[in-house]
Amino acid sequence: MQLSQVLMVWPKKMPRGNIWIGKQQMVRKVEPWHLKALNKDLEREKKNVHYCLNPYLTPEQERLGHEERNKNLPRIDQLAFKIRKAKIEATHFKEVRVEEGIAKLKHNVSWE
């Protein structure tokens, strides 16, 4: 953007193009809700920095707890395999009992 040209021309005539989204934009006025949102973001960042600098657990405590939690848990790929296997066994390879087959025959074929 050629700022000097815009500044020299602005009081006399409007800049070329769309003044809200174009290359030569007019600067929007700062409203109270803009400042409120900015202050809210700053407060959130301050809290996040405070949590990072003053953690609830020390890194050593966190490491020990993480090891203890992961002792009994299966690996992700093993868990995914078990879930897939259970789904396939429940849908495609489910057990079909003899009684069910006979019931279908009784429905379709008369024995007398």
Rank of each mutant, 00 (worst) to 15 (best):
P74E: 04
D77K: 06
I83D: 08
A103C: 04
W33M: 13
H92L: 14
L42H: 09
V27Q: 06
R63C: 13
I19A: 08
L64C: 06
K12Q: 15
Q78F: 04
N39H: 15
A80S: 05
L35K: 08
E89P: 00
W33R: 10
L38G: 06
G22H: 03
A90H: 03
N54E: 02
F81C: 07
R28H: 11
M8W: 07
H92R: 15
M14F: 13
S110T: 11
W111Q: 10
H107V: 12
H107C: 10
P11A: 00
N108R: 15
H107A: 13
H50S: 11
K85M: 05
S110K: 12
V30D: 01
M14V: 15
K94R: 12
E43Q: 13
Y51E: 12
V96Y: 01
P15H: 00
P11V: 02
G65N: 09
P15D: 01
V6Y: 00
N18I: 03
D77E: 11
N72L: 14
K23V: 07
N48V: 05
I83Y: 10
K104A: 08
L79G: 09
M8H: 12
V30A: 02
T91C: 00
I19G: 05
H66M: 09
M8S: 07
V96W: 01
I76L: 15
W33P: 01
V27T: 09
N54I: 03
S110Y: 08
N18H: 04
K82T: 14
L64S: 07
K40D: 06
N39F: 11
E100Y: 06
N72P: 01
M26Q: 11
K46N: 10
W33F: 15
E45D: 05
H34S: 00
V98L: 15
F93L: 09
N48C: 13
K12R: 15
L105Q: 08
W111Y: 13
L7I: 06
Q24P: 01
L79P: 00
R97H: 13
M1V: 07
K106L: 10
A80D: 06
I102R: 04
L53T: 07
K104T: 05
Q78I: 06
E67N: 08
V49E: 14
K71I: 07
K36G: 09
A103L: 05
M8L: 13
F81R: 07
P11C: 00
M1H: 04
I76W: 10
E68C: 05
A90M: 06
S110L: 08
Y51S: 13
Q78S: 08
M1E: 02
W111F: 14
F93R: 14
